[in-house]
Write a protein that binds this DNA or RNA. Structure first.
Lengths: 222, 222
DNA sequence: TGTACATCAGTGAACGCGCGTTCACTGATGTAC
DNA sequence: TGTACATCAGTGAACGCGCGTTCACTGATGTAC
């Protein structure tokens, strides 16, 4: 009668605490779900598929999540955790050269290739069939756009815009990045450059409009 | 033992040919699928659900489609059929006033409200879990963008751009429209104006960049 | 126009299958003394 | 340090259910004469 430790057991026989083991299994469930999500959408994968992929019995699932929807929300959290970390690193990476547009697009290209499952999940479920996931994802994207709108204060012309205008522009940038990521995921590798170039040109055109934009008056009383 | 004509039988007792009856049932299946798709994504709805919603037995499904995927592809075809018809009418509607941006956004707002299921299907399955549907939808969107890039020749500055540049711009416009439609569908009614205004401002900013864009040389030899 | 036969959109029963969830359980890890 | 007990992550059997698909069928519509 087998009943040993977690499915993703370390090859070395390190002593492993119950807490650590549980965390490992949970991670296995999350990774299993992300993997399955690259083929299907969230509301069509089953609890049993996830546990099978993670290497545990279906019933053990309930030790970690109440139901699939809760797993989905954790997926959103963890995906955006990774994404924010990437952005944080990218912002302060001194080895990146070139202007902001080229840098940003290249960053997206690299990270999409390195974390396909994660980006696919976000792109797919953003408009997917599960309301709470859509909400959670759009909330996170909005938060990223809001942070970006603060960063924009450091840029020449746009830095002087009122918050609301910077927010609009940040929204366009984030939107372009997400669309580009989705396009990269669905296209063969040899179209990578084409898609990246297209994104750069689109961003360039947007920035060309910036100096000619008349910021809206900050007359709060509408 | 009942075995009468189609589920969506005309209330009046008009004579109905076999061919017409079959077409009606097929339409009922398409409409049923679109309706179910507003709650779930395509790869999570079942053949039996669709037939139940359409009011026929599960087995009759096979008189119309080989399987669900075929129904999905028909859904794409018919959805874009309607969409193109809307665009055609919108382009030639003499009762629409205002500049192109306001007109376009207002057109999207009106049609999204009138055909929620249709737009939701396109937005949802564009990045959804069924490869062939994604492909089909993106092909159609590309075709719409291409048509638009021809229409753009009629506009002041942009009309002189080379095709490739107009295509890029048309792509941005279509993308903005799709995103706006998706946002409208997922937001409560009282945010309609806010979303529409945002779209108009984004489009305005893009067009401000146009006069300052340096069209790429048409040196075909790269 | 009437009759005999062909077509075929729709039916209901049946199948084997994977699903989510419950249950009582096991046995290693953790803790109290 | 050793012992006795508690905890709890994971197990396998079992359940009822909806699924996709097959099959032989029915009876109104369509067609040939």
């Amino acid at each position: 009668v087998p009943s040993r430790r977690p499915p993703s057991s370390r090859s070395t026989r390190e002593a492993i605490s119950r807490r650590e083991g549980k965390a490992l299994t949970r991670q296995a469930l999350v990774r299993a779900a992300l993997k399955l999500l690259s083929r299907n959408s969230f509301d069509s994968i089953s609890l049993r598929e996830v546990t099978r992929e993670a290497g545990i019995s279906p019933t053990a699932f309930y030790r970690h999540f109440d139901d699939m929807e809760e797993l989905g929300l954790v997926l959103v959290e963890e995906s955006f955790g990774s994404l924010r970390e990437m952005l944080r690193v990218a912002r302060s990476d001194p080895t990146m050269f070139g202007d902001a547009i080229n840098r940003s697009v290249e960053t997206v290209v690299i990270h999409v290739r390195d974390h396909e499952d994660l980006f696919r999940f976000i792109a797919r479920e953003r408009y997917g069939g599960v309301r709470r996931l859509r909400r959670a994802i759009n909330r996170e994207l909005q938060a990223i756009a809001d942070e970006l709108s603060v960063d924009l204060t450091a840029f020449p012309v746009i830095g002087g815009w009122p918050l609301e205008d910077r927010r609009m522009f940040a929204g366009m940038l984030v939107e372009t990045m997400v669309t580009t990521a989705a396009a990269l995921l669905d296209a063969p590798r040899d179209q990578t450059d084409e898609i990246a170039t297209r994104a750069k040109r689109q961003l360039r055109l947007m920035t060309l409009g910036v100096p000619h934009w008349k910021p809206q008056h900050t007359d709060r009383a509408r």
